[in-house]
Design a protein around this nucleic acid. Structure first.
Lengths: 216, 216
DNA sequence: TGTACATCAGTGAACGCGCGTTCACTGATGTAC
DNA sequence: TGTACATCAGTGAACGCGCGTTCACTGATGTAC
């Protein structure tokens, strides 16, 4: 357990010149492709460097090991997922407040699905973040951040303080939301539209029910 | 993609003698321990054999590769999770029918959490099944099976045919249920009791709402 | 009950290969004057 | 505008190690007579 946690995830040299930035991006793209093709159990710095069209020491210039590469890849996706969430908040709070938020959970899931699909190897990246111990904090931190904002917004809207329960409900909703999106991507036999529609209804119903109790 | 799928997962020789059965179990236990200790990206047949106290060719007697070992480990856990589901169905259908089922979603989640915790490396096994392509079918098949039963039971209870929508809702509930259990195990900062309570309420509320629409 | 024999279970040694990592080095880029 | 120089970026070669896999083999177990 301890050994697994001591993996260095920080990047080494930041790319400064144009050429270096292209190399850096090529490494991340190669890693994403290989995550899809050979999987987390087989990906290696050797494979990534070869696919990126560079030699291995060039990769080591920017990353200390493969975990750092996957970490950078995962952090990027988490950032984009967080951005979707924040944009959704802003849009709906400006517009119709609480009602608007609840009515548009389905839009949030849809956009989250989209941003994950747009990232090459998006699903595989998320699964890797879950399954590889040194990377787990990236995903947890993202979910905690978003859930915290969610709880704060919900509390403000009904003019109460953020309670432990509210925090838990927000976090639950966030994780359930991502679970629904991942499920739609993982099982190709499922009807994506139906899954998102029913899934957002589940979250929606949960909150309407909860707000009734808080207000009434 | 194709290459990943062509991994042989079937076991080779079944253990026949007592000694062999102990060896077989030792392999699975060793794999579970190592999944926790070194992770899916580092586990190898060499490590597993060493930990199990046997030589590598002895492992190859029963399994063609490490995926087959993980497959056996995962299939065992899925079986036990399915059994929990079935037991829960039986108990509650005998007792109080639909009401009893809805009231006891929380009991189901609790028992699922328990059976996963009781399996050494239970969480890591589930995560591996998700993240490793050749193993994904094991988990999907389990979820599909349980969701199918769920849909049938629900249809019977309100005397309708199983529709596509009902099937989707059942599957959603199953995956959300497992997501809640995994979330409780993945994030140690969370209050397990609260997560299970709110999570089962989410599923419960979803179905009460849906049944109102079907019946009313 | 004893033992010979068939089958099952596990070993020791070997193989070629890809892994992570580091070194001293060459080549490319940008900038001070 | 030209060039010398500092810094940045990437290479080639090498290392020891653990990987997956197979072989001919020895040892253990169970059973037929």
């Amino acid at each position: 357990m301890t050994a697994r946690r001591q993996v260095e995830l920080l990047e080494k040299n930041k790319p400064r010149q144009e050429r270096a930035k292209r190399t850096y991006e090529a490494i991340l793209n190669a890693a994403a492709e290989l995550l899809v093709e050979v999987g987390i159990e087989r990906i290696s710095t050797n494979l990534v460097a070869e696919r990126a069209g560079i030699t291995v020491p060039a990769l080591y210039r920017y990353f200390p090991n493969k975990y750092a590469v996957l970490n950078a890849l995962g952090a990027g996706l988490m950032d984009r997922q967080n951005a979707v969430f924040q944009q959704w908040f802003e849009d709906n709070l400006d517009e119709g407040g609480l009602e608007s938020l609840l009515d548009n959970v389905d839009e949030l899931l849809r956009k989250t699905l989209q941003v994950t699909r747009d990232q090459p190897g998006g699903l595989e990246v998320v699964q890797a973040l879950r399954a590889v111990a040194p990377l787990q904090e990236v995903r947890l931190a993202s979910h905690r951040l978003v859930a915290g904002q969610f709880a704060q917004v919900a509390a403000d809207l009904v003019s109460i303080e953020v309670t432990e329960q509210l925090r838990c409900q927000a976090r639950l909703s966030v994780d359930v939301g991502y679970a629904i999106v991942e499920m739609a991507m993982e099982d190709e036999t499922l009807d994506t539209e139906a899954v998102l529609a029913e899934g957002s209804r589940m979250i929606n119903t949960f909150w309407r029910n909860q707000l009734e109790q808080l207000q009434g």
